[in-house]
């Protein structure tokens, strides 16, 4: 079931890319990687991953702008903002911008898997 639930990880930090890829693949989810906002929009619209894990502070267009563009095309695509901007005001700001959920960095690996599993389960049902 998880095999067809591809997750796009959009993050300019290579360490974060590798961590997410390693953890999610181990949990059975195919992982796509985007290193900046434009790539994220491109992959999201062309390869239609099941959901997106989106960083905010990225070169070019930031994660919020990328999310806006993606949601404009595919409103149903779940996007979780994963950011080191993790004050409570930031969380509200991201949700207001259209995020389906927010994951604060640094995160527990279990939390990362739980967020993705939640959307995978929702899609399955």
């Amino acid at each position: 079931m998880a095999d067809d639930f591809a997750v796009l990880v959009a993050d300019d930090n290579e360490v974060a890319q590798r961590l997410c890829k390693r953890v999610l693949e181990k949990a059975g989810y195919p992982v796509l990687i985007a290193a900046d906002g434009l790539q994220a929009v491109d992959i999201a619209l062309n390869q239609r991953p099941a959901m997106i894990l989106m960083d905010v502070a990225m070169p070019g267009i930031d994660g919020l702008e990328a999310m806006r563009r993606i949601k404009a095309e595919v409103p149903s695509m779940p996007i979780v903002i994963a950011s080191a901007h993790s004050m409570s005001s930031d969380r509200d700001r991201f949700l207001a911008a259209g995020a389906d959920d927010v994951l604060s960095k640094p995160f527990r690996l279990a939390d990362l898997i739980a967020v993705v599993a939640g959307f995978a389960k929702a899609k399955a049902s």
Binding site: N13, V15, L19, V23, A57, S86, R108, L109
Partner: peptide, 17 residues
Amino acid sequence: SHEFRTALTGIQGFSEL
């Protein structure tokens, strides 16, 4: 804080692994 948390994301995640 953003810089620290970004660095800590790798540190915390990989050390957990």
